[in-house]
């Protein structure tokens, strides 16, 4: 008795295998897409965390939040804030040199220098009212005569594709210097095709500078 397979059997086998492989491929492909989505969404969260952590560390190392940057507002005004070029976070970091003898300081010199750091936002498309924003960090060093060294100023891009970012302080009569700085940052996936399915995350944090003015 011949024990081989017929063409029909082979065809059926191929069809079954095709269906199985197609199903498997679909499952794999779906899983891969889902994983990609999850990774991309996590990437949004990571970007949020990383950016806020960076600003937080920056502020905590600072001595003084420059008054008015950001502006102090009433609690009821918070929901009305929107991203703008004028909304800036500006603070100063002092760097001391304790190896100097104060009697050796020339007239007008102090034993510290400082860096003035500004976080600000720029629209990625000036013409598009729905444009995403880029967060920039500029640094302006001051010398030990309290004079700005404009030629040494730098600007560094912290993040692109920001949907919303606002800085503010709350008016609180019982705190010194306007209390904490609040940062509200919102990121939205820009690569998803379906607008309604865009992953979006928004975090608001508050942080207080640790240092103080040396005088």
């Amino acid at each position: 008795m011949r024990r081989g397979v017929t063409v029909v059997e082979l065809m059926i086998g191929l069809i079954i295998m095709s269906i199985l492989f197609t199903a498997l491929f679909q499952a794999f492909s779906t899983s891969r897409r889902t994983a990609t989505e999850i990774i991309a969404n996590h990437s949004i969260n990571d970007d949020l965390d990383r950016t806020l952590l960076r600003i937080t560390d920056d502020i905590r190392e600072s001595n003084v939040i420059v008054p008015g940057y950001p502006a102090t507002i009433e609690r009821m005004e918070v929901s009305t804030l929107s991203t703008s070029k004028e909304n800036k976070l500006k603070f100063e970091k002092y760097l001391y040199d304790y190896t100097k003898d104060p009697t050796s300081l020339a007239a007008g010199e102090v034993n510290y220098t400082k860096n003035e750091i500004t976080y600000y936002l720029e629209p990625e498309d000036d013409q598009d009212p729905d444009s995403t924003w880029t967060l920039q960090r500029s640094m302006l060093p001051y010398n030990n005569k309290k004079q700005p060294e404009n030629s040494l100023a730098t600007v560094f891009t912290i993040m692109r594709g920001i949907r919303e970012c606002v800085f503010y302080r709350l008016n609180d009569a019982n705190t010194s210097g306007g209390g904490n700085v609040y940062i509200r940052l919102k990121l939205t996936r820009t690569d998803a095709e379906d607008e309604s399915k865009k992953y979006s995350n928004e975090i608001t944090i508050s942080v207080k500078e640790r240092g103080a003015n040396p005088e």
Binding site: D57, R60, E61, N63, Y94, L95, Y96, R210, G211, A212, P214
Partner: peptide, 8 residues
């Protein structure tokens, strides 16, 4: 006491 520099 006033913290005038802080680093983590």
């Amino acid at each position: 006491h006033i913290v005038i520099s802080w680093k983590d």
